[in-house]
Design a protein around this nucleic acid. Structure first.
Length: 126
RNA sequence: AUAAUAAACUGUUCUGUCGUUCUCCUGCUUUGGCGGGAGAGAGGAAAGUCCGGGCAGCACAGAGCGCCAUACUUCCUAACGGGAAGUCUUCCGCAGAAAUGCGGGGGAAGAAAGUGCCACAGAAAAUAACUACCCUUGUUUACAGGGGCAAAGGUGAAAACGCGAGGUAAAAGCUCACGGUUCCUGCAGGUGACUGCAGGAAAGGGUAAACCUUAUGGGCUGAAAGGUCAAAUAAGUUCCGGAAUAAGCGGCUCGUUUAAUCCGUCAACUGACGGAGCGGAACGGGUAGACCGAAUGAUGCUGCAAGCAAUUGCAGUACAAGAUAAAUGACAGAAAUCUUCCGUCAACUGACGGGGGAUACAGAACCCGGCUUACAGGUUUGUUGUGAAC
RNA sequence: GAUUCCGUAGCUCAGCCGGUAGAGCAUCACACUUUUAAUGUGGGGGUCCUGGGUUCGAAUCCCAGCGGGAUCA
């Protein structure tokens, strides 16, 4: 299912600030992913959020568009990750940060996110 | 016809797949959710946060001082530093010999209440006097002292009303004619700023986006305001109730008096049903949280009327986003508009076919009224240039 | 969402109640030295963020914009 429900979004301010403090990062230009394990309170195996710094993109329109594209790429490609995490029973929180200075086409964002997820899965096993 | 420029209006459409927020209907369920269907889902500037309000909390006897903002007139408005219509003045463009007219931009309380400042140059930058001119004293030319004057010279952004005549030792609004400026008075027009005419007075550089004076307005803070709840409660859902409710009085588990609402449908003079609201019971989530504030309003649209207009009144009609690490999207295809290239027809402009490119500025964050700024393409109007025809 | 400050030489900053824009470091040339560094002497380098306005005159005063920073749970 390529859905994206409210429970799958990372909404807690506390978790987000914790992620920036203690989370581990995987970076492939122009996207950086911060992740950490969480306690499985709500029965959700995976929570993620997206963010674009205001410093690099002044216009709200540009930021919103990049966030939508990243969210869309995640929505399409998260199924494999979800199954993997369910096998291990290790709930995780992810945060995707767009670190590039200029906007890139959607295709590139999607490819890079797929690479990041694969690296995350292979790195998590070890 | 075309190009430039200014203003106003407008702000691309459709289909497919997957997905998202809210509302309604519905199925399953461990009551937490999961699935299906339908509907609604960014702007003219949502932006900048430059003004003005609503709203909320706090403060508050009255007056004064201080601080901030505004400043021609009349009107509009909830209010405004906004808007409309005007007055005077100045600058730019065009027409014209000029007067003046048309279009556009700026300015206008007070410099005649007081204080300050005006570099360099210049005698002097605001109680003027260097050269020069005139009178006079020292024996005479020269030179020096005293006095008069402000016409001529040069400096400067700016030099003490302009010009002519009279006048004088030499001069000077010192006097007079003409002209200009400011103020006062009267008359006429206008709601008014102001304009015209007549009379009188005065000589006074600039600067208030220097201090300031006058008038008017402003209590302070800002939704991160503020409120309810938070380890068993709030919101919500389901079921039940019909005076269970509210206020006052009486020491008060109760009694008594008064009041007992609003909306919709059906019936018909007083009821029934449903909902809001009220009471009770059960269930009931998260934890930097939930809910209220918070989506019916100075609201939009249409028509009529008043007004030059901004705007206002009346009637009808509509309900039109509500997110919160923050929804309204991603991808693909087609159409439309603009532009460019090639080919054909045709003949200097277009038609047809094909290929390429572009479709802006920009994302609600409590809500309104303005202002400012950004903006592809299109439409309309004004001005100017060029070309053609008459 | 709200409040507030700043923008001047390549860099860090003065100058900000108006009158020709400066300092330190850097850079260039010369001297000193066998050479380099250090030192000394001299020089160059500025749309004072942009546009408009007030004024005789604006980096400075006023208005609008652009860019950057800080604070408020």
């Amino acid at each position: 299912m390529q859905t994206l429900t409210k429970a799958e979004r990372l909404r807690s301010r506390k978790t987000i600030s914790l992620l920036f403090e203690k989370g581990k990062a995987i970076s492939i230009h122009p996207v950086k992913m911060v992740w950490m394990q969480t306690a499985n309170k709500e029965g959700v195996i995976l929570q993620f959020g997206v963010t674009v710094p205001k410093k690099n993109f002044k216009r709200a329109v540009d930021r919103n568009r990049l966030k939508r594209q990243m969210r869309e790429a995640m929505r399409k490609n998260k199924l494999q990750l979800k199954n993997f995490l369910e096998e291990k029973n290790k709930p995780c929180a992810l945060l995707l940060v767009f670190t590039g200075k200029e906007a890139v086409p959607y295709k590139e964002i999607e490819d890079k996110i797929i690479v990041i997820l694969q690296r995350f899965i292979s790195g998590f096993s070890n």
